Computed example of a mutant assay.
Amino acid sequence: MDEQRLIAWGASIEAATTRAVRDIVSTFPFEPGAHDVGPPASEAELAELRSRMPWIPDALVAVCRLVGAVSLPDIANGYFMFDPGYILGVLYHHDGLPDRIGAPFDEDVDIVVFGSDGGGALYAITLGDIGTVYRLRECAYDDAGGCYSYDTGASYDTSHVGVTMVAESLDKFLDKLLNAVMAFADDGSITDL
C-alpha cells in the first residue's frame, strides 16, 4: 500500500470522524464515546506481530504502521480496526497458524481478523497477494474446529449467516470505510460496508 495514501486516509477519516461527532453524535441523548484514529503501532509492536504471525498480509501491517487502530463506537453502528496488541492478545489463539474459514468456500481460506462493527460482525483479510476483505456475520470462534480443524488450531464457524465479500482488497475496504464515515458525518446516514 502506498504510504502517502495511507497517511492521507488516516487524516481524512480523522477529519470525517471529528465532523460526525460534532454535527451528528453530539445531538444524541448520550455522551459520545472516545473516537480514536491511531496512534501508529510502534516498531516493537510491529516486530512482534511479524515474528508471531509471519504470514500476516503486508497491507495490514502497513495500516498498523502508518495509521494504527481505529475506534469509532458512535459512528453509524460502530467501526473498529484493531491494533497489533489486540490481534496478538485476543485473536491469536494457537501455535503460529492462521485462522481459517471453511463454509461457504469449496476450500478453506486463511485469514486474519482485523476489525469489527458495532453489530457483532468481524472483518477479515485473506492471506496472499489479493487480500480480499470479508465480513463474518454471526460467526463463532470454534476451538473444536467446527468448520475446519488443524491438529493444534481452530477456525471460525460461519455456518449460521456466513461470509460476505466486502472489498476486493484492503485498500478498497479503507475507501468504503471512509465513505461510510463521511456519509454519516453529512447527515447521519448509515451505510453498510
Rank of each mutant, 00 (worst) to 15 (best):
M1C: 13
M1V: 11
E3F: 01
Q4M: 14
Q4V: 01
W9N: 00
W9C: 03
W9F: 15
G10L: 04
G10K: 09
G10E: 08
I13C: 04
E14N: 14
E14W: 00
E14G: 02
E14V: 02
A15S: 14
T17L: 07
T18I: 05
R19P: 11
A20Q: 07
A20T: 04
V21A: 08
R22T: 04
I24T: 06
V25N: 07
T27L: 13
F28P: 09
F30D: 10
E31T: 04
E31I: 05
P32A: 12
G33S: 14
A34T: 14
D36M: 06
V37S: 06
P39W: 08
S42N: 13
E43T: 11
A44Y: 07
E45S: 13
E45D: 14
E45R: 11
L49G: 13
P54L: 07
I56E: 00
P57G: 12
D58A: 10
L60F: 05
V61T: 15
V63A: 10
V63P: 00
C64Y: 06
C64Q: 15
C64S: 13
L66N: 15
L66H: 14
L66Q: 08
G68K: 03
G68M: 03
V70T: 12
S71W: 12
L72Q: 09
I75M: 11
A76D: 14
N77I: 07
G78L: 09
F80E: 10
P84C: 00
P84V: 00
P84K: 09
G85H: 03
G85Y: 04
I87V: 15
G89V: 04
G89K: 02
V90M: 10
L91N: 13
L91F: 11
H93C: 08
D95A: 15
D95Q: 14
G96I: 09
L97D: 08
R100I: 02
R100S: 00
I101Q: 01
I101W: 00
G102V: 00
A103H: 09
F105S: 06
E107F: 06
D108Q: 07
V109R: 15
D110Y: 09
V112W: 10
V112I: 10
V113C: 08
V113D: 08
F114M: 05
G115R: 01
G115Y: 00
S116E: 13
L122T: 02
Y123I: 05
A124P: 03
T126R: 01
L127R: 06
G131L: 03
Y134E: 04
Y134W: 08
R135L: 13
L136S: 12
E138C: 03
C139E: 05
D142A: 13
G145V: 06
G145C: 04
G145W: 12
G146W: 00
Y148E: 01
S149H: 14
Y150G: 02
D151R: 07
G153W: 01
G153V: 02
D157Q: 04
T158S: 12
G162V: 03
V163R: 01
V163Y: 00
M165L: 07
M165D: 15
V166Q: 11
S169Y: 01
L170I: 01
D171W: 10
D171G: 05
D171Y: 07
F173C: 07
K176R: 07
L177V: 02
L178K: 09
N179Y: 07
N179W: 05
N179V: 05
A180L: 13
G188N: 11
G188V: 04
S189Y: 05
S189L: 08
S189H: 06
T191I: 15
T191V: 15
D192W: 15
